[in-house]
Design a protein around this nucleic acid. Sequence first.
DNA 1: ATGAAAGCGCTAACAC
DNA 2: GTGTTAGCGCTTTCAT
Lengths: 348, 348
Amino acid sequence: MGAAAPLERPGRPQPVTLRQVAEAAGVSTATVSLVVNKKKTARISDETRQRVRDAIRDLGYRPNAMAQTLVSGSSRFIGLVADAIATTPFAGQIIHGAQDEAWKHGYALLIANTEGNRELETDAIAMMLEYKVRGILYSTWFHRPTDIPASLKESDFVLVNCFSTEPGSRAVVPDEIQGGRSATEILLKHGHRRIAFINATIPAPAKDGRLQGYREALEAEGIPFDAGLVLEAYPDQEGGYGATEELLKREATAVYCYNDRMAMGLYDGLREHGLSIPEDIAVVGFDNQEVIAAHVRPPLSTVALPHYELGAAGVRMLLGLEEAPAADPTKIHCPTVERNSVRALAPA
Amino acid sequence: MGAAAPLERPGRPQPVTLRQVAEAAGVSTATVSLVVNKKKTARISDETRQRVRDAIRDLGYRPNAMAQTLVSGSSRFIGLVADAIATTPFAGQIIHGAQDEAWKHGYALLIANTEGNRELETDAIAMMLEYKVRGILYSTWFHRPTDIPASLKESDFVLVNCFSTEPGSRAVVPDEIQGGRSATEILLKHGHRRIAFINATIPAPAKDGRLQGYREALEAEGIPFDAGLVLEAYPDQEGGYGATEELLKREATAVYCYNDRMAMGLYDGLREHGLSIPEDIAVVGFDNQEVIAAHVRPPLSTVALPHYELGAAGVRMLLGLEEAPAADPTKIHCPTVERNSVRALAPA
DNA sequence: ATGAAAGCGCTAACAC
DNA sequence: GTGTTAGCGCTTTCAT
């Protein structure tokens, strides 16, 4: 962290304390505490209870969560350390899911952005540890293996959208294989048999998983895998655009793109060849990147990366509300989102 | 908040306390505190200091920030309440900027997502107040007027990307007028004189500001404002696409679109008419929505919404590091981002 | 140069 | 039914 700025808040009155409420209501602090916390076991007369409530309202009392935490020993914070919170909308979804789920269980989210900087990361984790967080979610903006920072182990933690081979670590990741299968199945169920796949050039669990899913889906339909139908390109719009020529040589009736950005680029390339989607060729993407998939022409059928769910499941796992079954990361389902870039293949 | 989940963390040892360090080092807690906080005023012998440091390291001591906060009265938290943290990448940028700046000054960010739900919002603010945050950033995902929730006033606060007419409220918003001016100027400086503007249909500060900026820029060049050159459409891809026909009737040599999404749709419409960008018509957008602007064909010249800066400036203003000059919201500059959708107008 | 002790706001065990 | 009291882990004033 940087240098500490001064703390004074000029002009703001000291917050009202429990003791002040007690004095105003003419009762002890214990009594006030009991009515504030609605303890079932305590028997407080309705009359007293009302006096206390009035005092609380009149004084505008707010409990001091720090003091409560000091007593109970553990805070109601969950830390979320992210390597990139705004590079893509995806990280935002993880935060969103984590925040909603945490909130549901009475926890607040403490977040830190590390930009992948190890030092910042160590500081962030230290800060969270000092605030006695209930646990830490360690997340990455794309699905990948990761090393577990040593200090992370001082707390409960769950890896989100990343994983480690270290034993005893819990992790939640998207089910890339199922996702690849689903993407391919959209095409298959519309009658396509000759389906190309434009994979990414960069190594990643997604690259392997999405390919494997493609193979599995074909195999399930009894279609032999043809390596010639698998291309590779850089996973963005330019990559998709640039793959157009090669793709066309394959004479496939449908393409499954590694991600929506590539599909968007491919749309441009296809259009330049006077081809229309889905009439001349069907296209599916992956990621369900809203700004793109929902608004290209025609809207793109794709498979969604479950980032919201990843964040939420991470919290549940952290709180022990969800089993972390095996040594393997828990896989989260990637749902299919069908739009209009695929239509039934006309009989030959 | 939802029901509280149990707090036990099975199997984790109790954290080491100051007192344990003191005992291990054979000194008093006061001494340990002094060395931990590197107090200049305290004179501790090097030998003692070293003993304490060793004990800290050996025991793996971490200060309990809750206890520190209890003593000091104010935490090193800054709260950020957002109405939509993942609807667009924009909210993520605000969080990012706020988090970086907060961190720089030794503060951590506590975030809450309200989905625009007033009740959730009240709860979120209450939570932050109970954790004795240094102040609260109240942010919206698009620039708009807002009501200030009553409880917000119990703390220092700054409105981010929104504003209120209530006196005494500080706010940071994007400078829409300057942004509109800059967008128009990109076109102007390439020699365009007949510039259409596709504005949004939905009322918003952005709608008025971006139009005003357009008028100002034209005026500065001595070009009379022609209301016939201003169209309106729903501010997304479909809206931009749908405005194509109307736009073409205007016979403008350049268009300035209310946002990048409209520009993206317009690209499709223009292409269908066999027009190419920037040869046949120049296009600029607004927002600098990365996934779109940087990757459409040709890459789109646009004006960036300064979300990161908004978050950072909000924090600085909250901490009193930056003046909140007037009663009016502080306006943040919208930088121009030139790409390839505009080229010099060929002489007529 | 270091220790003793009070107290931050709250909870919970135990008195009465 | 309600009050008293002893901490939770830490900082800080005041002794020594």
